[in-house]
Design a protein around this nucleic acid. Structure first.
Lengths: 223, 223
DNA sequence: TTTTTGAATTACATTTTTGTAAGATTAAAA
DNA sequence: TTTTAATCTTACAAAAATGTAATTCAAAAA
């Protein structure tokens, strides 16, 4: 479940928000002490931050800026100062959205859902590639399935990454070899067979079967 | 220069926008034919799309949704229907921001700059980390400087990546060791010295100097 | 200053990755 | 079916990465 951190000093509003968000399937956490907001925020490790801009010890713009220095967590700023300058500032300070009070709670929800979704996608695109039967974790260079995790060597990773880039399409042996060894000294053609074999073995160790098919005379295809 | 695609059927407004954005350092492209918007948009390969929601042959919400299927390009929806439903819909269809007409052109600019900045960071975070003195290419796991490129081994890469995550901050030896060897069998404390040494050597081979400083008793810091 | 301690350095042994060789399979062609 | 050629498989050797040991160095404490 995704966690939303609510930084809001008005206890009534905070409570209302929490109730509403909980009802809509989010875990929430309210911040009540504001003398060390930045650290508190970062510690909570929330998926999204709902930040009221009028706080006793520190203002939202500053907080926003500070949090952005070390985290990319989505931030929605709630402000009661309904004028354009505020809006302008919020954006420049790194907030992802702003909402002016009094706000429509459905719109707020839509913004939250939208931001989370987008953030989720960003993560997937960069670090992990979901191939149905397994996940290629690019950050760690491992293949994952359920609770299993198998490390790939450089060659294995490069071949599999190249195949995922052309998933469902046949890639020729030459294309793969160019990708792996580029302009290097001549590499035995059979070396690719061996490397493919090693990769296949690891994929099978993970519990998948026949994901890399051979197209005799044409190349390989990742199903 | 970053390119903004303006999808707007009112020629006067489009022209005004283009002039304004050009003045502010952006390349612009206007879309005039609207019978094949989706493909046109994707072809242009813009850095950001400014999308009017009232178009003759297709509405902005649909376009937005379609574009999102294959691209993560930032989208700002411009709408004249100034009510909450529109706002709600825009968000759900994957737009990053919305602007209602008549809009303050400075705010629009702020939104554009903000979105591009955030997107740019997203890109850097995933594939390359620019550390001034060198670039850590995460995709290829090499360090780069000018036309030089040096491969890192797994340990070297992990140490350097961990340091860049905390650039300018001291990280303790224990933190690094936990990151590298986590719950594995006991690893000699000196092993880290050796791995740091190896990484430093490669950084020097690249032409940099003293980037990883030792903080005796505290850890290391990447300058 | 001397002593102490954390870190750097060098050399070496172990492990892992990688490429090659030789032979076995298998699908398609003859 | 037999032949041919592409691919697979296994085993092994070379190369690269990694960890450990022993020693040196240098900053801070005494």
């Amino acid at each position: 479940m995704q966690k939303i951190l609510i930084v809001e000093d008005d206890e009534k509003i905070r409570h209302e928000l929490e109730t509403f968000l909980n009802k809509n399937g989010f875990e929430t956490e309210g911040l009540k002490e504001f003398d060390n907001v930045i650290n508190d925020i970062l510690e909570k490790n929330a998926d999204l931050i709902l930040l009221d801009i009028n706080l006793p010890y520190s203002d939202g713009e500053y907080i926003c800026k500070e949090v952005r220095k070390t985290s990319n967590v989505p931030i929605i700023i709630v402000t009661s100062r309904n004028n354009e300058i505020d809006e302008l500032m919020s954006l420049n300070y790194g907030a992802d959205q702003y909402v002016t009070k009094p706000y429509n709670i459905q719109i707020l929800l839509a913004k939250i859902v939208g931001l989370l979704k987008r953030n989720e996608n960003a993560g997937i695109n960069t670090d992990k590639i979901d191939c149905k039967d397994f996940v290629l974790n690019r950050a760690e260079r491992v293949i994952e399935k359920e609770n299993l995790k198998i490390e790939l060597t450089k060659n294995e990773y490069n071949i599999l990454y190249f195949l995922t880039l052309h998933k469902g399409k046949v890639v020729s042996r030459d294309e793969i070899m160019d990708y792996l060894w580029e302009s290097e000294e001549f590499i035995d053609d059979n070396t690719l067979n061996v490397n493919i074999k090693r990769l296949r073995t690891k994929l099978e160790d993970l519990g998948t079967k026949d994901l890399i098919e051979t197209r005799r005379g044409q190349g390989y295809i990742l199903k």
